[in-house]
């Protein structure tokens, strides 16, 4: 049986390394993605994601076990990423991901995929910070508007607007490259 986040959090609060490690392993994907959405640079984003987990451990007594652990953690991660971004004035990178060009594709297909990915990275990086976070939480992490509003501390209507405008900008940036995106 899979141990719940609440049970793991209680054990982590008592200093249980395995429990805290299980929490980190379980949530590292979403926390790192949110950090990357905010910061851009993957190394700085991982630094922020680590800071977020340490901060979560530091204040784990404030977590209410009757509520989901994910939004509580994502709120901390978002703040940690924004803090790091402010502190370092991180230079966003739009590096081409090498994975896309090496997976069983013809050179032409690999190049096309790489260009699509490059466009996505550029378009996403050009979005305002809050739109990047809102789109990531909504489209990638699957949070509802209300949950995102709670995480970001803004009205739900603002989140809806951010998601709408962010997605529209991304679609417009990618539409010329891939017309099928019009149907999404």
């Amino acid at each position: 049986m899979v141990e719940s986040d609440g049970a793991l959090a209680a054990r982590a609060a008592a200093g249980d390394r395995d429990a805290f490690g299980a929490l980190v392993a379980r949530h590292q994907g979403s926390v790192r993605r949110v950090a990357r959405a905010v910061i851009g640079d993957e190394h700085d984003a991982d630094d922020a994601a680590q800071d977020a987990f340490l901060s979560a451990l530091d204040r784990i007594e404030t977590y209410d076990p009757s509520r989901p652990f994910g939004p509580w953690l994502i709120r901390i991660a978002t703040n940690a990423a924004i803090d790091l971004l402010r502190r370092r004035a991180v230079r966003r990178t739009v590096a081409l991901d090498e994975r896309m060009s090496s997976r069983d594709r013809s050179p032409a297909a690999a190049a096309a995929a790489a260009e699509l990915r490059e466009r996505m990275a550029a378009a996403f990086g050009a979005l305002p910070e809050r739109q990047r976070i809102a789109v990531t939480l909504f489209d990638v992490e699957g949070y509802a508007h209300a949950e995102i509003a709670e995480i970001l501390g803004v009205p739900e209507g603002t989140v809806r607007s951010d998601v709408f405008h962010g997605r529209r900008s991304l679609r417009e940036a990618l539409r010329m490259f891939d017309p099928t995106l019009e149907d999404e």
């Binding site: 993605r33 996505m120 999404e184």
Partner: peptide, 21 residues
């Protein structure tokens, strides 16, 4: 588009090194 965005944001590792760090 969502899948493309997720792939863009998802780290290219299994997370073990991150967890250990």
């Amino acid at each position: 588009m969502n899948e493309l965005l997720k792939r863009h944001l998802t780290p290219d590792d299994d997370g073990r090194a991150f967890t250990e760090a």
